[in-house]
Simulated assay, not measured.
Amino acid sequence: MTTVHAAMLDQIKSGQGFIAALDQSGGSTPKALKGYGIEADAFSNDEEMFALIHDMRSRIVTAPCFNGDKVIGAILFERTMDGDAGGKPVPALLWERGVVPFLKVDKGLEDEIDGVQLMKANPGLDDLCERAVAKGVFGTKMRSVVNLANPVGVNAIVEQQFAEAKRIAAHGLMPIIEPEVNIKSAERDGADRLLLQEITTALDSWEGAPVMLKLSLPAEAGLFQSLVDHPKVLRVVALSGGFARPEACTELAKNPGIIASFSRALLEDLRHQMSDEEFNASLGGAIKEIHAASVA
Rank of each mutant, 00 (worst) to 15 (best):
M1D: 00
T2A: 02
T3L: 07
A6Y: 02
M8W: 07
L9T: 05
D10L: 10
I12V: 14
S14Q: 06
G15V: 06
T29G: 14
G37D: 06
A42S: 10
A42W: 02
E47Q: 02
E47S: 01
F50D: 00
L52D: 11
M56Y: 06
I60R: 05
T62A: 04
K70C: 09
G73P: 11
E78K: 10
D82H: 08
D82L: 08
P89Y: 05
P91F: 09
L94K: 05
W95S: 14
V99A: 04
V99D: 05
V99M: 05
V100F: 13
P101M: 09
E110C: 14
E112D: 03
D114Y: 13
V116E: 07
A121P: 14
N122Q: 03
D126F: 05
D126A: 13
D127E: 15
R131I: 07
V137P: 01
R143P: 00
S144P: 01
V146R: 02
V146G: 00
N150D: 15
P151Y: 15
I157A: 04
V158H: 10
Q161D: 11
A165R: 13
A170H: 11
I176H: 11
E178T: 08
V181Q: 02
V181A: 10
R188W: 14
G190D: 10
L195C: 01
T200W: 05
V211N: 01
A219Y: 08
G222P: 07
L223M: 08
L227Y: 05
L227V: 02
L234A: 03
A238F: 04
S240D: 08
A244L: 01
C249H: 00
S261Q: 07
F262Y: 10
E268Y: 08
Q273L: 02
M274W: 04
D276V: 09
D276N: 14
D276A: 14
E278N: 09
E278T: 15
F279Q: 07
L283V: 11
G284V: 12
A292H: 00
A292G: 00
A293E: 01
